[in-house]
Amino acid sequence: DYEVGESVTVMDGPFATLPATISEVNAEQQKLKVLVSIFGRETPVELTFGQVSKI
């Protein structure tokens, strides 16, 4: 299970290999909103559970 505030690594898509912090969890739809730090700015990205891995 994923929790808000948890650190994960993006495994898929254009942000693969980047660390991210979970900002929202939708367990019903198996989706997460995460904040990816790009060029010093936090960018919100919506991903599925399968696109991230716990650190």
Rank of each mutant, 00 (worst) to 15 (best):
V45R: 02
I55Y: 07
M11L: 13
G40E: 06
F15P: 00
I55H: 10
S23P: 01
G50H: 10
D1C: 13
K54W: 04
N26D: 12
Q30S: 09
F15R: 02
V45S: 04
E46F: 08
E6G: 08
D12R: 07
Q30N: 09
V36K: 00
S53H: 09
A27W: 14
K54L: 06
L35C: 09
E28N: 09
V25N: 02
F15H: 06
G40S: 04
A27P: 10
T48D: 13
G13F: 03
Y2S: 01
V45W: 06
T21V: 15
A16T: 07
V25T: 04
P14T: 07
V4W: 04
V45G: 03
T17H: 13
E3F: 13
A20R: 01
L47V: 11
G50R: 07
Y2Q: 01
E6R: 04
T43A: 08
G40N: 07
V52Q: 00
V4M: 06
K31W: 11
I22R: 00
S53R: 12
G5N: 05
L32P: 00
Q30R: 14
V10D: 00
S37E: 13
Q29I: 09
K31C: 08
I22Y: 00
G13T: 02
A20G: 14
N26A: 06
Q29P: 03
T21L: 12
V4Y: 05
G13P: 03
I22S: 01
S53W: 04
E28Q: 10
K31N: 06
Q29L: 12
T17A: 09
A20Y: 02
F15M: 05
Q29D: 11
L32M: 08
E42T: 11
G13W: 03
V34A: 07
V25A: 03
V25D: 00
T17I: 04
T9P: 01
M11F: 05
S7Y: 11
V34R: 00
I38F: 10
G50K: 10
E28P: 10
Y2W: 13
F49T: 04
N26K: 07
F39I: 09
D12A: 11
N26W: 14
G50D: 14
V34L: 07
Q51N: 06
E42A: 10
P14Y: 07
I38P: 05
T17G: 15
I55D: 09
S53T: 11
E24L: 07
K33F: 06
P19E: 12
P14W: 07
T21F: 09
S53P: 01
M11W: 05
I38E: 09
S7V: 15
E24F: 10
L47Q: 01
L35H: 08
V8M: 02
I38K: 06
L32K: 01
V36A: 02
D12I: 10
E3A: 13
K33R: 10
Y2M: 05
T9S: 06
P44V: 15
V4G: 03
L18I: 06
S23W: 12
V52W: 00
V45K: 02
G5H: 04
E3I: 13
N26L: 10
Y2P: 03
G13L: 02
T48K: 10
G40R: 02
T48S: 12
E46G: 04
L18K: 07
E46N: 07
E42I: 13
L32H: 00
M11P: 02
L18N: 06
V36S: 01
E46V: 08
E46L: 06
E28C: 08
V52K: 00
E46A: 04
V25P: 01
F15G: 02
S23E: 11
V52L: 03
I38V: 10
T17R: 10
F15K: 02
V4S: 04
S7M: 15
Q30H: 10
L35F: 08
E28A: 13
V36C: 04
V4A: 06
K33A: 05
V4C: 06
E28L: 11
V45Y: 07
I38H: 10
S23A: 13
L32I: 10
Q51T: 04
G5D: 04
I55C: 10
G5K: 03
T43L: 13
K33T: 14
P19Q: 14
F49Y: 11
S7F: 12
K33D: 03
E28D: 12
N26S: 08
I22A: 02
K54S: 06
V52M: 02
P14E: 10
V8N: 01
P19T: 15
F39E: 15
Q30T: 06
T43M: 13
V4H: 04
F39V: 09
P14H: 07
V25W: 03
F15Y: 14
Q29G: 10
P14A: 08
N26Q: 08
G40M: 04
I22Q: 01
S23L: 15
K54G: 05
S23D: 06
P14F: 06
K33V: 15
T48P: 06
G40V: 03
A16Q: 08
A27M: 13
I38W: 12
G40I: 03
G50Q: 12
G40H: 04
I55V: 13
E3N: 11
I55K: 11
L18C: 11
E6I: 06
S37I: 15
V4K: 06
S37C: 15
S7R: 15
T43K: 05
P44M: 15
A20E: 01
F39R: 12
Q30M: 10
L18H: 10
M11V: 12
A20K: 02
E42S: 09
V34N: 00
D12Y: 12
Y2D: 01
V52E: 01
E6S: 07
V52F: 02
V45F: 07
E24T: 06
S37F: 09
K31V: 10
K33P: 01
D1W: 14
V34C: 09
T9I: 15
S53C: 11
T9F: 13
E3D: 08
F39M: 15
V52A: 04
E24W: 12
T43F: 15
T9N: 07
Q30E: 09
Q30K: 14
K31Q: 08
F49D: 01
Q29V: 09
Q30A: 08
P19C: 14
V10I: 15
L47H: 01
V4D: 03
D12E: 12
L32D: 00
I55M: 10
Q29W: 08
E6F: 05
E6C: 08
T21W: 10
F49C: 03
Q30P: 02
S37W: 09
I55L: 11
S37V: 15
F39G: 15
E42R: 05
F49N: 04
G13D: 02
L18E: 05
T21G: 02
R41Q: 14
Q29N: 10
P19R: 13
G5E: 03
D1N: 13
V52Y: 00
G50L: 12
S23V: 15
Q29A: 12
V36M: 05
V4I: 11
F49A: 03
V52N: 00
S23Y: 15
K31A: 06
N26E: 05
G40K: 03
F49I: 04
L35N: 08
A16K: 11
N26C: 11
Y2C: 05
L47W: 00
V4N: 04
A16F: 06
S23N: 08
Q51G: 05
S7A: 12
I55P: 09
E3C: 11
P44N: 13
S23G: 06
D12H: 11
I38D: 08
T43I: 15
E42K: 07
F39K: 12
S7G: 08
R41T: 14
N26G: 04
G40P: 05
V10N: 00
A20M: 03
L47R: 01
V8L: 04
I22L: 03
V10E: 00
Q29Y: 10
V10W: 02
F49V: 04
F49S: 03
E28I: 11
G50F: 09
I55A: 11
V45A: 07
V8D: 00
S23Q: 14
E3Y: 14
T9W: 15
F15V: 02
I22T: 01
K33Q: 09
